[in-house]
Structure formats: structure tokens, C-alpha cells
């Protein structure tokens, strides 16, 4: 499997992700500038966390208009897997690849802590490595991670089993305790917690590995996409 990591001006979790993929999981990955317009040689795209374009206007609002995001949209439309972590999730909602939006945390504070999550749906290509309803611990680090969608959308997310991760103890005010969702087709995941920061015992835990090992295990299985 070969993973593309788009690097926006202001991304700051791209190297962590690159390290997690190459050094821990032995997955081939490339850091790509925003000018890249063709992703056909890749099997997955992971948008890293950070503050793309300084969070100017709104987090993710400027990044979504870059050439590489047009390529990511095309890539996602073919059913290939796309993951957005933290700022990556914000970019995916701004780009319309995922429903809803990320608001400022209810407390108006930047929150940096370990967060307990429930794996609400372990039947996505990003979560098969986890047990049903498994509780895991992943770090969160965000000022605008408060997921919002209207009640109709929330009901749809629930009915279609699009909620992948829920906070056990909601830290930021997210609607429905939502920490991570997939699109209707199931090939685009957005999550505020950082799985790439939880891949080594030395750094406090390995609960994030499951996202990447799931992706790896399901890479060849066309039947699980769409």
C-alpha cells in the first residue's frame, strides 16, 4: 500500500504521520506539496493535522481550494480511502466530502489530552481491527473540534452507521459525542483524535494502530468500499 500525505502550509502533524507509517507500520508514504494534481499511483490519502493556511477565515477553509484537494476529491469519488485527522477532518468538512462542520470548543479552550473513545462502528475499512464497542485512548489536540450538524443529519449519520468513534466523556461539546465519522459510501473518514500519535508504547499507547492496520488489511478488499 502506498499512502499520499498532502502537506499544506501550516500542517504540523505530517512528519508524525510519516513516521508512524514508515517506521512503525512499514507502509510506503510520500509527503506531497499542494501543487500535486494526480494521485492515481496511491492507494490511500491521509490529510494530516495542523493549522493549514494559519486557520485563516475558518480552519480548513483555504486548504480546500488547493490543487491537491481537487485531486483528493477525484480520488475519493473513485471509492479509494481518504482519511482526515484533526485539521484534515476540518478540511474534509469544508470541502463537502463529509457532512457538518467543526466549531470552536464549547469551553473556548484549546484541549490537549488523552481522550477515551468508543469504537461505535468497527465495520468500516478504517476500524475492522477494533472490537465492536471497544474503548480506546487517543490524544486530542484542538481548539475547534466541536462537531456540529443539524438533527436531520445526525439522524442520518446514526441510521447509516456513519459514526465510527464517539467520545466516552465529551471534551468539546460535539453533537452526539462525535469524534469521527465516515461518508455515506464509507471510504472517507474524518476524526479529531490523533491515531498517528498513539502508535508506540514509548509515547503513551498504541491504540491508534488499528486505524492504519484496518486500512492496510482492507486495502485489497474492493467489497468493503461502497
Amino acid at each position: 500500500m502506498k499512502v499520499a500525505i498532502p502537506v499544506f502550509p501550516g500542517s504540523n502533524c505530517d512528519e508524525d504521520l510519516y513516521h508512524a507509517l514508515w517506521d512503525i507500520l512499514q507502509i510506503t508514504a510520500d509527503l506531497l506539496p499542494v501543487t500535486v494534481t494526480n494521485l492515481s499511483q496511491y492507494d490511500a490519502v491521509i490529510l494530516p493535522g495542523g493549522f493549514s493556511y494559519g486557520d485563516y477565515l475558518r480552519s480548513g477553509a483555504i486548504a480546500r481550494f488547493t490543487p491537491i484537494m481537487a485531486a483528493v476529491k477525484d480520488f475519493a469519488s473513485t471509492g479509494k480511502p481518504v482519511v482526515g485527522i484533526c485539521n484534515g477532518f476540518q478540511i474534509l468538512t469544508e470541502a463537502g466530502l463529509l457532512p457538518g462542520a467543526l466549531r470552536a470548543n464549547q469551553s473556548s479552550r484549546f484541549i490537549c489530552q488523552n481522550s477515551e473513545l468508543q469504537v461505535t462502528n468497527n465495520q468500516t475499512i478504517f476500524s475492522t481491527a477494533y472490537q465492536p464497542q471497544e474503548h480506546i485512548k487517543l490524544p486530542i489536540a484542538h481548539g475547534e473540534g466541536n462537531y456540529y450538524c443539524d438533527l436531520t443529519t445526525l439522524a442520518e449519520l446514526r441510521a447509516q452507521k456513519q459514526i465510527v468513534f464517539e467520545y466516552v466523556d465529551n471534551p468539546n461539546g460535539s453533537v452526539g459525542n462525535i469524534a469521527g465519522i465516515v461518508n455515506r459510501r464509507g471510504n472517507v473518514l474524518g476524526m479529531m483524535p490523533h491515531p498517528e500519535r498513539a502508535v508506540e508504547v514509548l509515547l503513551g499507547g498504541t491504540d491508534g494502530l488499528g486505524v492504519f492496520t484496518s486500512l492496510l488489511a482492507n486495502n485489497q478488499r474492493e467489497d468493503v468500499h461502497a
Partner: peptide, 8 residues
């Protein structure tokens, strides 16, 4: 398209 996020 840009200045507002009409979701919120």
C-alpha cells in the same frame, strides 16, 4: 462558497 460556512 468561501466567506461563510453555511452549515453554521
Amino acid at each position: 462558497r468561501l466567506l461563510a460556512n453555511v452549515n453554521m
